[in-house]
Nucleic acid binder design. Sequence first.
DNA 1: AGTATATTGTGATTTTTTTCACAGAAAGAA
DNA 2: TTCTTTCTGTGAAAAAAATCACAATATACT
Lengths: 211, 211
Amino acid sequence: MKTSPNKSIERLSMYRRLLRESENEGTENVYSHDLADAAGCTAAQVRRDLMLVGCSGNPKTGYQVKGLINCICNLLDTPEGDSVALVGFGNLGKALLPFFAKHHKKLVITATFDSNPKKIGEISNGCECYSMESLKKVISEKNIKIAILTVPAEVAQEVAEQLIEANIQGILNFVPIPLQLKNNIIVENMHVEIALEKVAYLTRAANTITD
Amino acid sequence: MKTSPNKSIERLSMYRRLLRESENEGTENVYSHDLADAAGCTAAQVRRDLMLVGCSGNPKTGYQVKGLINCICNLLDTPEGDSVALVGFGNLGKALLPFFAKHHKKLVITATFDSNPKKIGEISNGCECYSMESLKKVISEKNIKIAILTVPAEVAQEVAEQLIEANIQGILNFVPIPLQLKNNIIVENMHVEIALEKVAYLTRAANTITD
DNA sequence: AGTATATTGTGATTTTTTTCACAGAAAGAA
DNA sequence: TTCTTTCTGTGAAAAAAATCACAATATACT
Ligand SMILES: NC(=O)c1ccc[n+]([C@@H]2O[C@H](COP(=O)([O-])OP(=O)(O)OC[C@H]3O[C@@H](n4cnc5c(N)ncnc54)[C@H](O)[C@@H]3O)[C@@H](O)[C@H]2O)c1
Ligand SMILES: NC(=O)c1ccc[n+]([C@@H]2O[C@H](COP(=O)([O-])OP(=O)(O)OC[C@H]3O[C@@H](n4cnc5c(N)ncnc54)[C@H](O)[C@@H]3O)[C@@H](O)[C@H]2O)c1
Protein backbone atom coordinates (compact mmCIF):
# COMPACT_ATOMS: atom_id res chain seq x y z
CA MET A 1 0.00 0.00 0.00
CA LYS A 2 1.06 3.53 -0.76
CA THR A 3 0.10 6.84 0.77
CA SER A 4 -2.28 8.67 -1.53
CA PRO A 5 -1.40 12.05 -2.96
CA ASN A 6 -2.29 14.97 -0.75
CA LYS A 7 -4.54 16.70 -3.20
CA SER A 8 -6.54 13.57 -3.85
CA ILE A 9 -7.27 13.22 -0.15
CA GLU A 10 -8.65 16.74 -0.07
CA ARG A 11 -10.82 16.11 -3.08
CA LEU A 12 -12.03 12.78 -1.75
CA SER A 13 -13.15 14.48 1.41
CA MET A 14 -15.06 16.98 -0.71
CA TYR A 15 -16.59 14.25 -2.88
CA ARG A 16 -17.82 12.51 0.21
CA ARG A 17 -19.57 15.63 1.42
CA LEU A 18 -21.21 16.12 -1.96
CA LEU A 19 -22.15 12.47 -2.22
CA ARG A 20 -23.83 12.62 1.18
CA GLU A 21 -25.93 15.49 -0.04
CA SER A 22 -26.88 13.51 -3.13
CA GLU A 23 -27.72 10.55 -0.95
CA ASN A 24 -30.04 12.70 1.15
CA GLU A 25 -31.77 13.83 -2.00
CA GLY A 26 -32.33 10.23 -2.93
CA THR A 27 -29.81 10.01 -5.77
CA GLU A 28 -28.50 6.48 -6.18
CA ASN A 29 -25.93 6.84 -8.95
CA VAL A 30 -23.53 9.51 -10.14
CA TYR A 31 -21.23 9.87 -13.10
CA SER A 32 -17.71 11.17 -12.75
CA HIS A 33 -18.68 14.37 -14.55
CA ASP A 34 -21.53 15.03 -12.11
CA LEU A 35 -19.12 14.90 -9.22
CA ALA A 36 -16.60 16.91 -11.19
CA ASP A 37 -19.10 19.68 -11.84
CA ALA A 38 -20.14 19.79 -8.22
CA ALA A 39 -16.59 19.75 -6.92
CA GLY A 40 -15.18 22.10 -9.51
CA CYS A 41 -12.65 19.77 -11.08
CA THR A 42 -12.45 17.54 -14.14
CA ALA A 43 -14.08 14.17 -14.69
CA ALA A 44 -10.74 12.53 -15.37
CA GLN A 45 -9.50 13.74 -12.04
CA VAL A 46 -12.52 12.36 -10.25
CA ARG A 47 -11.99 8.96 -11.83
CA ARG A 48 -8.30 9.00 -10.96
CA ASP A 49 -9.08 9.90 -7.38
CA LEU A 50 -11.71 7.21 -7.13
CA MET A 51 -9.24 4.61 -8.36
CA LEU A 52 -7.36 5.28 -5.14
CA VAL A 53 -10.21 4.20 -2.94
CA GLY A 54 -10.64 1.00 -4.92
CA CYS A 55 -14.28 1.45 -5.73
CA SER A 56 -15.29 0.95 -9.31
CA GLY A 57 -18.15 2.24 -11.38
CA ASN A 58 -20.17 0.94 -14.21
CA PRO A 59 -19.88 2.33 -17.73
CA LYS A 60 -23.59 2.78 -18.06
CA THR A 61 -24.84 3.60 -14.59
CA GLY A 62 -21.79 5.38 -13.20
CA TYR A 63 -20.93 4.97 -9.52
CA GLN A 64 -23.24 3.93 -6.75
CA VAL A 65 -23.54 6.78 -4.29
CA LYS A 66 -23.74 4.58 -1.21
CA GLY A 67 -20.88 2.36 -2.28
CA LEU A 68 -18.70 5.32 -3.04
CA ILE A 69 -19.35 6.94 0.31
CA ASN A 70 -18.41 3.70 2.00
CA CYS A 71 -15.20 3.34 0.05
CA ILE A 72 -14.15 6.89 0.84
CA CYS A 73 -15.01 6.40 4.50
CA ASN A 74 -12.85 3.29 4.55
CA LEU A 75 -9.92 5.37 3.41
CA LEU A 76 -10.53 8.51 5.46
CA ASP A 77 -12.06 7.25 8.67
CA THR A 78 -11.33 4.71 11.31
CA PRO A 79 -14.36 2.69 12.35
CA GLU A 80 -14.15 3.99 15.94
CA GLY A 81 -13.45 7.58 14.93
CA ASP A 82 -10.70 9.81 16.31
CA SER A 83 -10.59 12.12 19.28
CA VAL A 84 -9.26 15.62 18.71
CA ALA A 85 -7.89 18.19 21.15
CA LEU A 86 -8.43 21.92 20.70
CA VAL A 87 -5.58 23.88 22.22
CA GLY A 88 -6.17 27.59 22.84
CA PHE A 89 -9.77 28.25 23.77
CA GLY A 90 -9.97 31.87 22.59
CA ASN A 91 -12.01 33.63 19.94
CA LEU A 92 -11.18 31.26 17.15
CA GLY A 93 -11.27 28.14 19.30
CA LYS A 94 -14.72 29.06 20.54
CA ALA A 95 -15.98 29.42 16.98
CA LEU A 96 -14.45 26.14 15.87
CA LEU A 97 -15.75 24.01 18.70
CA PRO A 98 -19.50 24.21 17.92
CA PHE A 99 -18.71 24.05 14.21
CA PHE A 100 -17.02 20.68 14.52
CA ALA A 101 -19.50 19.45 17.11
CA LYS A 102 -22.25 20.01 14.58
CA HIS A 103 -20.61 18.38 11.60
CA HIS A 104 -18.50 15.46 12.53
CA LYS A 105 -19.26 12.01 13.70
CA LYS A 106 -15.84 10.50 13.22
CA LEU A 107 -13.61 13.38 14.24
CA VAL A 108 -14.78 14.65 17.58
CA ILE A 109 -13.20 17.34 19.72
CA THR A 110 -13.21 15.72 23.13
CA ALA A 111 -11.06 18.14 25.09
CA THR A 112 -10.02 21.76 24.96
CA PHE A 113 -6.99 23.22 26.70
CA ASP A 114 -6.05 26.71 27.76
CA SER A 115 -3.56 28.39 30.05
CA ASN A 116 -6.04 30.96 31.30
CA PRO A 117 -7.33 29.81 34.72
CA LYS A 118 -10.65 31.54 34.05
CA LYS A 119 -11.39 29.25 31.13
CA ILE A 120 -10.45 26.02 32.86
CA GLY A 121 -13.39 23.89 33.87
CA GLU A 122 -15.68 25.61 31.37
CA ILE A 123 -17.84 23.10 29.55
CA SER A 124 -19.28 23.71 26.09
CA ASN A 125 -20.52 21.35 23.44
CA GLY A 126 -20.06 18.52 25.87
CA CYS A 127 -16.39 19.19 26.14
CA GLU A 128 -14.38 20.38 29.12
CA CYS A 129 -11.59 22.93 29.09
CA TYR A 130 -8.52 21.57 30.84
CA SER A 131 -5.37 23.21 32.14
CA MET A 132 -2.14 22.90 30.24
CA GLU A 133 -0.74 21.04 33.25
CA SER A 134 -3.14 18.19 32.63
CA LEU A 135 -2.38 18.09 28.89
CA LYS A 136 -0.31 14.93 28.95
CA LYS A 137 -2.63 13.09 31.27
CA VAL A 138 -5.88 13.94 29.48
CA ILE A 139 -4.47 13.31 26.02
CA SER A 140 -3.19 9.95 27.10
CA GLU A 141 -6.42 9.00 28.84
CA LYS A 142 -8.58 9.98 25.90
CA ASN A 143 -6.11 8.47 23.45
CA ILE A 144 -5.94 11.68 21.43
CA LYS A 145 -3.58 11.79 18.46
CA ILE A 146 -4.62 15.00 16.73
CA ALA A 147 -4.74 18.61 17.89
CA ILE A 148 -6.09 21.88 16.57
CA LEU A 149 -3.75 24.70 17.53
CA THR A 150 -5.28 28.13 18.17
CA VAL A 151 -2.99 29.78 20.70
CA PRO A 152 -1.29 33.17 20.31
CA ALA A 153 1.63 33.14 17.89
CA GLU A 154 4.18 33.99 20.60
CA VAL A 155 3.62 30.69 22.40
CA ALA A 156 2.70 28.48 19.45
CA GLN A 157 6.07 26.82 18.97
CA GLU A 158 6.41 26.07 22.65
CA VAL A 159 2.85 24.74 22.93
CA ALA A 160 3.36 22.62 19.81
CA GLU A 161 6.39 21.04 21.46
CA GLN A 162 4.34 20.29 24.56
CA LEU A 163 1.82 18.60 22.30
CA ILE A 164 4.47 16.39 20.73
CA GLU A 165 5.73 15.61 24.20
CA ALA A 166 2.18 14.47 25.00
CA ASN A 167 2.27 12.16 21.99
CA ILE A 168 0.20 14.19 19.57
CA GLN A 169 1.05 13.10 16.02
CA GLY A 170 -0.85 15.53 13.82
CA ILE A 171 -1.61 19.24 14.16
CA LEU A 172 -4.05 21.47 12.34
CA ASN A 173 -2.31 24.80 12.81
CA PHE A 174 -4.19 28.09 12.64
CA VAL A 175 -1.28 30.10 13.98
CA PRO A 176 0.36 32.12 11.23
CA ILE A 177 3.86 30.84 11.84
CA PRO A 178 5.56 27.76 10.43
CA LEU A 179 6.01 25.33 13.31
CA GLN A 180 9.46 23.79 13.54
CA LEU A 181 8.86 20.17 14.41
CA LYS A 182 10.35 16.79 13.68
CA ASN A 183 9.08 15.80 10.31
CA ASN A 184 7.35 12.66 11.38
CA ILE A 185 4.74 15.00 12.85
CA ILE A 186 1.97 15.90 10.42
CA VAL A 187 1.29 19.62 10.29
CA GLU A 188 -1.43 21.14 8.17
CA ASN A 189 -1.45 24.91 8.11
CA MET A 190 -4.54 27.09 7.81
CA HIS A 191 -2.97 30.44 7.09
CA VAL A 192 -5.94 32.71 6.80
CA GLU A 193 -3.99 35.90 6.21
CA ILE A 194 -1.88 34.34 3.52
CA ALA A 195 -5.01 33.11 1.80
CA LEU A 196 -6.50 36.58 1.86
CA GLU A 197 -3.32 38.11 0.49
CA LYS A 198 -3.37 35.54 -2.27
CA VAL A 199 -6.95 36.42 -3.17
CA ALA A 200 -6.00 40.08 -3.26
CA TYR A 201 -2.99 39.42 -5.46
CA LEU A 202 -4.80 37.11 -7.86
CA THR A 203 -7.74 39.46 -8.13
CA ARG A 204 -5.46 42.30 -9.06
CA ALA A 205 -3.42 40.09 -11.38
CA ALA A 206 -6.56 38.97 -13.19
CA ASN A 207 -7.27 42.60 -13.95
CA THR A 208 -3.82 43.84 -14.87
CA ILE A 209 -2.40 40.92 -16.69
CA THR A 210 -3.61 40.15 -20.16
CA ASP A 211 -2.42 36.60 -20.24
CA MET B 1 4.59 40.28 -17.21
CA LYS B 2 3.29 36.90 -16.14
CA THR B 3 1.19 35.87 -13.21
CA SER B 4 3.39 34.17 -10.61
CA PRO B 5 2.78 30.58 -9.59
CA ASN B 6 0.24 30.17 -6.84
CA LYS B 7 2.49 28.40 -4.42
CA SER B 8 5.16 31.02 -4.74
CA ILE B 9 2.68 33.72 -3.78
CA GLU B 10 1.83 31.85 -0.61
CA ARG B 11 5.45 31.41 0.30
CA LEU B 12 6.30 35.01 -0.48
CA SER B 13 3.59 36.12 1.89
CA MET B 14 5.11 33.90 4.55
CA TYR B 15 8.64 35.16 3.85
CA ARG B 16 7.43 38.69 4.27
CA ARG B 17 6.00 37.92 7.67
CA LEU B 18 9.21 36.25 8.75
CA LEU B 19 11.33 39.05 7.34
CA ARG B 20 9.32 41.62 9.28
CA GLU B 21 10.06 39.71 12.45
CA SER B 22 13.74 39.67 11.59
CA GLU B 23 13.60 43.37 10.88
CA ASN B 24 12.08 44.03 14.28
CA GLU B 25 14.90 42.07 15.87
CA GLY B 26 17.39 44.29 14.07
CA THR B 27 18.60 41.77 11.50
CA GLU B 28 19.76 43.48 8.32
CA ASN B 29 20.66 40.57 6.06
CA VAL B 30 19.44 37.02 5.51
CA TYR B 31 20.62 34.11 3.45
CA SER B 32 18.25 31.97 1.45
CA HIS B 33 18.81 29.08 3.82
CA ASP B 34 17.87 31.20 6.83
CA LEU B 35 14.54 32.01 5.27
CA ALA B 36 14.16 28.42 4.13
CA ASP B 37 14.68 27.11 7.65
CA ALA B 38 12.22 29.58 9.08
CA ALA B 39 9.60 28.95 6.42
CA GLY B 40 10.09 25.21 6.30
CA CYS B 41 11.14 24.87 2.69
CA THR B 42 14.40 24.57 0.76
CA ALA B 43 16.94 27.28 0.03
CA ALA B 44 16.65 26.68 -3.71
CA GLN B 45 12.95 27.29 -3.50
CA VAL B 46 13.45 30.51 -1.61
CA ARG B 47 15.83 31.78 -4.26
CA ARG B 48 13.48 30.76 -7.05
CA ASP B 49 10.61 32.55 -5.37
CA LEU B 50 12.69 35.64 -4.79
CA MET B 51 13.62 35.75 -8.47
CA LEU B 52 9.95 36.44 -9.10
CA VAL B 53 9.93 39.62 -7.11
CA GLY B 54 12.99 40.88 -8.92
CA CYS B 55 15.09 41.50 -5.87
CA SER B 56 18.61 40.19 -5.93
CA GLY B 57 21.01 39.23 -3.22
CA ASN B 58 24.71 39.25 -2.80
CA PRO B 59 26.79 36.08 -2.73
CA LYS B 60 28.52 37.09 0.44
CA THR B 61 25.99 39.08 2.42
CA GLY B 62 22.80 37.44 1.24
CA TYR B 63 19.64 39.54 0.89
CA GLN B 64 18.89 42.84 2.55
CA VAL B 65 15.92 42.37 4.83
CA LYS B 66 14.47 45.82 4.17
CA GLY B 67 14.92 45.61 0.43
CA LEU B 68 13.36 42.21 0.30
CA ILE B 69 10.32 43.28 2.27
CA ASN B 70 9.88 46.18 -0.12
CA CYS B 71 10.13 43.99 -3.20
CA ILE B 72 7.59 41.53 -1.83
CA CYS B 73 5.28 44.38 -0.87
CA ASN B 74 5.52 45.71 -4.41
CA LEU B 75 4.26 42.42 -5.70
CA LEU B 76 1.63 41.65 -3.08
CA ASP B 77 0.29 45.04 -2.09
CA THR B 78 -1.14 48.08 -3.75
CA PRO B 79 0.24 51.34 -2.36
CA GLU B 80 -3.23 52.44 -1.24
CA GLY B 81 -4.22 49.07 0.17
CA ASP B 82 -7.44 47.17 -0.48
CA SER B 83 -10.80 47.25 1.23
CA VAL B 84 -12.36 43.95 2.14
CA ALA B 85 -15.97 43.02 2.95
CA LEU B 86 -16.88 40.36 5.50
CA VAL B 87 -20.17 38.73 4.64
CA GLY B 88 -21.89 36.75 7.39
CA PHE B 89 -21.24 38.25 10.78
CA GLY B 90 -21.72 35.11 12.87
CA ASN B 91 -19.38 33.15 15.12
CA LEU B 92 -16.60 32.83 12.63
CA GLY B 93 -16.99 36.32 11.21
CA LYS B 94 -16.78 37.80 14.68
CA ALA B 95 -13.53 35.96 15.33
CA LEU B 96 -12.02 36.98 12.01
CA LEU B 97 -12.80 40.68 12.25
CA PRO B 98 -10.55 41.58 15.20
CA PHE B 99 -7.91 39.19 13.91
CA PHE B 100 -7.55 41.06 10.63
CA ALA B 101 -7.98 44.43 12.29
CA LYS B 102 -4.94 43.64 14.39
CA HIS B 103 -2.68 42.38 11.68
CA HIS B 104 -3.21 44.12 8.43
CA LYS B 105 -2.39 47.54 7.20
CA LYS B 106 -2.94 46.94 3.51
CA LEU B 107 -5.92 44.64 3.59
CA VAL B 108 -8.58 46.16 5.79
CA ILE B 109 -12.08 44.92 6.45
CA THR B 110 -14.12 48.08 6.04
CA ALA B 111 -17.62 46.66 6.05
CA THR B 112 -19.46 43.63 7.34
CA PHE B 113 -22.80 42.40 6.06
CA ASP B 114 -25.50 40.21 7.54
CA SER B 115 -29.13 39.37 6.90
CA ASN B 116 -30.03 39.29 10.57
CA PRO B 117 -31.69 42.62 11.47
CA LYS B 118 -30.36 42.36 15.02
CA LYS B 119 -26.78 42.56 13.78
CA ILE B 120 -27.25 45.43 11.41
CA GLY B 121 -25.85 48.71 12.65
CA GLU B 122 -23.54 46.96 15.10
CA ILE B 123 -20.09 48.52 15.07
CA SER B 124 -16.94 46.63 16.01
CA ASN B 125 -13.31 47.23 15.21
CA GLY B 126 -14.29 50.49 13.58
CA CYS B 127 -16.46 48.70 11.09
CA GLU B 128 -20.21 48.79 10.66
CA CYS B 129 -22.50 45.85 9.93
CA TYR B 130 -24.73 46.63 6.97
CA SER B 131 -27.86 44.95 5.65
CA MET B 132 -27.71 42.76 2.57
CA GLU B 133 -29.96 45.24 0.83
CA SER B 134 -27.24 47.85 0.98
CA LEU B 135 -24.58 45.41 -0.27
CA LYS B 136 -24.28 46.82 -3.76
CA LYS B 137 -24.32 50.43 -2.65
CA VAL B 138 -21.76 50.09 0.16
CA ILE B 139 -19.41 47.91 -1.87
CA SER B 140 -19.48 50.39 -4.68
CA GLU B 141 -19.00 53.40 -2.41
CA LYS B 142 -16.09 51.84 -0.59
CA ASN B 143 -14.67 50.43 -3.80
CA ILE B 144 -14.43 46.95 -2.37
CA LYS B 145 -13.19 44.18 -4.65
CA ILE B 146 -12.65 41.33 -2.20
CA ALA B 147 -14.98 39.54 0.19
CA ILE B 148 -14.66 37.00 2.98
CA LEU B 149 -17.61 34.64 2.95
CA THR B 150 -18.81 33.23 6.27
CA VAL B 151 -22.53 32.65 5.83
CA PRO B 152 -24.38 29.36 6.39
CA ALA B 153 -23.79 26.76 3.69
CA GLU B 154 -27.43 26.75 2.59
CA VAL B 155 -27.28 30.34 1.38
CA ALA B 156 -23.62 30.52 0.33
CA GLN B 157 -24.10 30.05 -3.40
CA GLU B 158 -26.85 32.61 -3.53
CA VAL B 159 -24.93 35.14 -1.45
CA ALA B 160 -21.83 34.59 -3.58
CA GLU B 161 -23.87 35.44 -6.65
CA GLN B 162 -25.08 38.62 -4.99
CA LEU B 163 -21.45 39.49 -4.34
CA ILE B 164 -20.52 39.02 -7.98
CA GLU B 165 -23.54 41.13 -8.88
CA ALA B 166 -22.10 43.82 -6.62
CA ASN B 167 -18.81 43.62 -8.51
CA ILE B 168 -16.77 41.62 -6.07
CA GLN B 169 -13.89 39.95 -7.92
CA GLY B 170 -12.29 37.72 -5.33
CA ILE B 171 -13.70 35.63 -2.50
CA LEU B 172 -12.07 33.98 0.47
CA ASN B 173 -14.56 31.22 1.11
CA PHE B 174 -14.92 29.57 4.52
CA VAL B 175 -18.10 27.78 3.61
CA PRO B 176 -17.49 24.08 3.06
CA ILE B 177 -19.07 23.92 -0.37
CA PRO B 178 -17.46 24.57 -3.76
CA LEU B 179 -18.96 27.77 -5.11
CA GLN B 180 -20.10 27.60 -8.71
CA LEU B 181 -19.04 30.88 -10.22
CA LYS B 182 -17.78 32.20 -13.51
CA ASN B 183 -14.10 31.44 -13.60
CA ASN B 184 -12.91 34.97 -13.91
CA ILE B 185 -13.84 35.24 -10.24
CA ILE B 186 -11.01 34.30 -7.89
CA VAL B 187 -12.10 31.90 -5.18
CA GLU B 188 -9.81 30.68 -2.45
CA ASN B 189 -11.28 28.02 -0.22
CA MET B 190 -10.53 27.56 3.46
CA HIS B 191 -12.03 24.17 4.09
CA VAL B 192 -11.36 23.59 7.73
CA GLU B 193 -13.06 20.23 7.97
CA ILE B 194 -11.25 18.90 4.95
CA ALA B 195 -7.98 20.02 6.45
CA LEU B 196 -8.74 18.22 9.68
CA GLU B 197 -9.71 15.07 7.85
CA LYS B 198 -6.46 15.26 5.96
CA VAL B 199 -4.47 15.58 9.17
CA ALA B 200 -6.31 12.56 10.56
CA TYR B 201 -5.65 10.54 7.42
CA LEU B 202 -2.00 11.46 7.14
CA THR B 203 -1.40 10.84 10.81
CA ARG B 204 -2.83 7.38 10.51
CA ALA B 205 -1.01 6.76 7.24
CA ALA B 206 2.31 7.77 8.79
CA ASN B 207 1.77 5.03 11.36
CA THR B 208 0.44 2.22 9.20
CA ILE B 209 2.44 2.65 6.07
CA THR B 210 6.04 1.62 6.01
CA ASP B 211 7.01 3.53 2.95
C1' DA C 1 47.29 40.98 -5.30
C1' DG C 2 45.93 36.37 -4.94
C1' DT C 3 43.37 32.71 -2.64
C1' DA C 4 39.77 30.50 -0.09
C1' DT C 5 35.00 30.32 1.04
C1' DA C 6 30.14 30.60 1.04
C1' DT C 7 26.42 32.13 -1.33
C1' DT C 8 23.64 33.66 -5.30
C1' DG C 9 21.22 32.88 -9.76
C1' DT C 10 19.70 29.73 -12.90
C1' DG C 11 19.86 26.03 -16.54
C1' DA C 12 18.88 21.06 -16.34
C1' DT C 13 16.62 17.32 -14.22
C1' DT C 14 13.37 14.96 -11.50
C1' DT C 15 9.11 14.42 -9.34
C1' DT C 16 4.36 15.28 -8.87
C1' DT C 17 -0.04 16.42 -10.60
C1' DT C 18 -3.19 17.09 -14.21
C1' DT C 19 -5.01 16.37 -18.60
C1' DC C 20 -5.66 13.77 -22.86
C1' DA C 21 -7.39 10.17 -25.40
C1' DC C 22 -9.07 5.84 -26.30
C1' DA C 23 -9.87 0.72 -25.66
C1' DG C 24 -13.19 -1.95 -23.27
C1' DA C 25 -17.68 -2.54 -21.15
C1' DA C 26 -22.56 -2.21 -19.87
C1' DA C 27 -27.27 -1.16 -21.12
C1' DG C 28 -30.94 -0.20 -24.15
C1' DA C 29 -32.88 -0.15 -28.89
C1' DA C 30 -33.85 -2.35 -33.14
C1' DT D 1 -28.82 -10.92 -31.45
C1' DT D 2 -26.35 -6.95 -32.98
C1' DC D 3 -25.72 -2.15 -33.00
C1' DT D 4 -25.27 2.28 -30.74
C1' DT D 5 -24.33 5.09 -27.20
C1' DT D 6 -22.04 6.74 -23.25
C1' DC D 7 -19.65 5.86 -19.78
C1' DT D 8 -15.37 3.84 -17.03
C1' DG D 9 -10.45 2.76 -16.26
C1' DT D 10 -6.01 3.78 -17.39
C1' DG D 11 -1.64 4.18 -20.22
C1' DA D 12 0.63 8.05 -22.25
C1' DA D 13 1.55 12.92 -22.66
C1' DA D 14 1.73 17.44 -20.86
C1' DA D 15 2.16 20.84 -17.38
C1' DA D 16 3.54 22.44 -13.01
C1' DA D 17 6.43 22.40 -9.10
C1' DA D 18 10.45 21.14 -6.66
C1' DT D 19 15.14 19.81 -6.51
C1' DC D 20 19.81 19.40 -8.12
C1' DA D 21 24.06 21.07 -9.30
C1' DC D 22 27.28 24.30 -10.61
C1' DA D 23 29.34 28.54 -12.77
C1' DA D 24 29.68 33.23 -11.39
C1' DT D 25 30.77 36.31 -7.77
C1' DA D 26 31.35 39.17 -3.58
C1' DT D 27 33.93 39.40 0.58
C1' DA D 28 37.50 38.37 3.98
C1' DC D 29 41.95 36.74 4.81
C1' DT D 30 46.88 36.18 3.87
N1 LIG E 1 -9.31 34.94 15.47
C1 LIG E 1 -9.22 34.52 14.24
O1 LIG E 1 -10.15 34.65 13.46
C2 LIG E 1 -8.01 33.87 13.73
C3 LIG E 1 -7.93 33.49 12.41
C4 LIG E 1 -6.80 32.84 11.95
C5 LIG E 1 -5.78 32.57 12.82
N2 LIG E 1 -5.85 32.96 14.08
C6 LIG E 1 -4.75 32.64 14.97
O2 LIG E 1 -5.23 31.75 15.96
C7 LIG E 1 -4.62 32.04 17.19
C8 LIG E 1 -5.68 32.35 18.21
O3 LIG E 1 -6.44 33.46 17.81
P1 LIG E 1 -7.59 34.01 18.69
O4 LIG E 1 -8.19 35.14 17.98
O5 LIG E 1 -8.49 32.90 19.13
O6 LIG E 1 -6.78 34.55 19.96
P2 LIG E 1 -7.25 34.61 21.46
O7 LIG E 1 -6.28 35.44 22.19
O8 LIG E 1 -8.70 34.94 21.52
O9 LIG E 1 -7.12 33.10 21.95
C9 LIG E 1 -5.92 32.51 22.31
C10 LIG E 1 -6.18 31.56 23.47
O10 LIG E 1 -4.99 30.86 23.78
C11 LIG E 1 -4.82 30.85 25.19
N3 LIG E 1 -3.40 30.71 25.50
C12 LIG E 1 -2.45 31.66 25.62
N4 LIG E 1 -1.27 31.13 25.92
C13 LIG E 1 -1.46 29.80 26.02
C14 LIG E 1 -0.61 28.71 26.33
N5 LIG E 1 0.70 28.88 26.57
N6 LIG E 1 -1.14 27.49 26.34
C15 LIG E 1 -2.46 27.30 26.09
N7 LIG E 1 -3.31 28.30 25.79
C16 LIG E 1 -2.81 29.53 25.76
C17 LIG E 1 -5.39 32.15 25.66
O11 LIG E 1 -5.74 32.08 27.03
C18 LIG E 1 -6.59 32.32 24.74
O12 LIG E 1 -7.72 31.71 25.29
C19 LIG E 1 -3.68 33.19 16.95
O13 LIG E 1 -2.38 32.69 16.74
C20 LIG E 1 -4.20 33.82 15.68
O14 LIG E 1 -3.15 34.40 14.96
C21 LIG E 1 -6.95 33.59 14.56
N1 LIG F 1 -17.57 28.54 13.06
C1 LIG F 1 -16.45 28.06 12.54
O1 LIG F 1 -15.48 27.90 13.23
C2 LIG F 1 -16.36 27.75 11.09
C3 LIG F 1 -15.19 27.20 10.61
C4 LIG F 1 -15.07 26.95 9.25
C5 LIG F 1 -16.13 27.22 8.43
N2 LIG F 1 -17.26 27.71 8.92
C6 LIG F 1 -18.34 28.00 7.98
O2 LIG F 1 -18.53 29.38 8.01
C7 LIG F 1 -19.90 29.66 7.89
C8 LIG F 1 -20.36 30.47 9.06
O3 LIG F 1 -20.13 29.76 10.25
P1 LIG F 1 -20.54 30.39 11.65
O4 LIG F 1 -20.17 29.40 12.68
O5 LIG F 1 -20.02 31.76 11.78
O6 LIG F 1 -22.14 30.40 11.52
P2 LIG F 1 -23.13 31.46 12.16
O7 LIG F 1 -24.49 30.91 12.00
O8 LIG F 1 -22.67 31.84 13.51
O9 LIG F 1 -22.98 32.74 11.24
C9 LIG F 1 -23.58 32.89 9.99
C10 LIG F 1 -24.00 34.33 9.83
O10 LIG F 1 -24.50 34.52 8.52
C11 LIG F 1 -25.70 35.30 8.59
N3 LIG F 1 -26.53 35.02 7.43
C12 LIG F 1 -27.45 34.04 7.26
N4 LIG F 1 -28.02 34.12 6.05
C13 LIG F 1 -27.46 35.18 5.43
C14 LIG F 1 -27.64 35.79 4.16
N5 LIG F 1 -28.49 35.28 3.27
N6 LIG F 1 -26.91 36.86 3.87
C15 LIG F 1 -26.03 37.36 4.75
N7 LIG F 1 -25.82 36.85 5.98
C16 LIG F 1 -26.53 35.76 6.30
C17 LIG F 1 -26.34 34.88 9.88
O11 LIG F 1 -27.22 35.90 10.33
C18 LIG F 1 -25.13 34.72 10.79
O12 LIG F 1 -24.80 35.91 11.42
C19 LIG F 1 -20.61 28.34 7.78
O13 LIG F 1 -20.84 28.03 6.43
C20 LIG F 1 -19.64 27.37 8.35
O14 LIG F 1 -19.77 26.11 7.76
C21 LIG F 1 -17.40 28.01 10.24
